[in-house]
């Protein structure tokens, strides 16, 4: 069976959900090894094992920025063991490590994939959404192994399959001299309400709300539904809401049961982050807004008329 490696960054002391998604894919393609960047713990190993990891290469980079030293350490292992494929997620640290690793190995890396395949004869492909998700481009690797791919979050479900704790191999973190950087402080924003990436319902707002203070309408629709609140980049850039709420190409990828878009035009870069919601509801005063082309229910109307009535009804029905 082919060796497939999946990168996983530690977040809040645990394996990231994205890493577990990659692990699920790695398992379906071959023999999975996790490249774990972070402090590590017995619980983390247990989680990885229960998600099917057989082996973990552990890169404990401490206060060093992961990018250069972790890429160098992975390169050394990859040169020795030549896995068939190494999977990364479309996320900050993943991209940092993948880019530098590609240079070290002299191999291409295919970004923004939504799926990867590996044939018995060794050929590998990635699938990419183009034209805002209307079309899929299939790309083939034309280079030796390992094939490097960066996959969008939520492309594969992270599912526990039950399994014993994996073999954990501690890796040496090399000195990379001037290519290294240090993390001197970490700041976490206080989290309010449910997590965007986990929520079953998301209510999002865009520039059509008209002003920062009207974002409270989004929060008022969300509260009775127990929903998370999201935003377009337009209103994040305008400073109405923090970046953590941004949904889309350069923000979060979400896949809730219901996504309610309020005053959002539906730009391609927004759609790629939310179009896989099971049910999409949109309120927009422009009947030609692109968001309506993917909505299950589109209301052509003014957010200032529709949302207050919706809020009232939701409160009543609670």
């Amino acid at each position: 069976m082919s060796e497939i490696w999946a990168f996983c960054e530690e977040t809040d002391g645990a394996p990231s959900t994205l890493g577990l998604e990659l692990l699920a894919k790695a398992r379906s393609l071959g023999e999975p090894t996790v490249l774990y960047a972070g402090g590590g713990s017995a619980r983390a190993w247990e989680t990885l094992g229960s998600h099917g990891a057989v082996r973990v290469l552990h890169f404990d980079h401490g206060d060093r920025l992961a990018a250069a030293p972790v890429a160098a350490a992975i390169a050394e292992q990859a040169n020795e063991q030549t896995p068939a494929m190494i999977l990364f997620g479309q996320a900050y640290t993943d991209r940092d490590v993948a880019g530098r690793l590609a240079v070290r190995l002299g191999l291409p890396v295919l970004s923004n994939a939504v799926d990867v395949t590996l044939e018995a004869d060794g050929t590998a492909t990635t699938r990419h959404e183009i034209s805002g998700g209307a079309e899929i481009a299939v790309a083939a690797f034309r280079a030796p192994r390992p094939h490097l791919a960066i996959v969008r979050p939520k492309s594969f479900p992270a599912e526990p399959v039950g399994g014993p704790p994996p073999e954990v191999v501690p890796m040496e973190i090399p000195d990379v001299g001037g290519a290294g950087a240090m993390v001197t402080e970490r700041h976490a924003r206080e989290r309010q309400g449910p997590d965007l990436e986990e929520a079953a319902v998301i209510v999002s707002g865009g520039r059509g709300l008209g002003a920062a203070e009207h974002y409270s309408m989004v929060e008022s629709v969300a509260a009775p539904l127990g929903a998370a609140t999201g935003a377009t980049r337009a209103i994040v850039d305008a400073g109405w809401v923090p970046y953590a709420k941004q949904v889309g190409q350069t923000g979060k990828t979400v896949k809730p049961d219901v996504y309610i878009a309020c005053g959002i035009s539906g730009a391609m870069q927004h759609l790629v982050g939310m179009k896989d919601a099971k049910t999409i509801i949109a309120i927009n005063k422009d009947p030609d807004a692109p968001i309506f082309t993917i909505s299950d229910l589109g209301i052509v109307g003014d957010v200032h008329k529709v949302m207050p009535k919706l809020i009232e009804k939701l409160r009543e029905s609670r």
Partner: peptide
């Protein structure tokens, strides 16, 4: 939007990104 050109450049230049 490959999002990796800067990191690749840094590695080639031998500097931090």
């Amino acid at each position: 939007y490959s999002g990796v050109v800067p990191q690749m450049m840094a590695e080639l230049l031998g500097v931090a990104a």
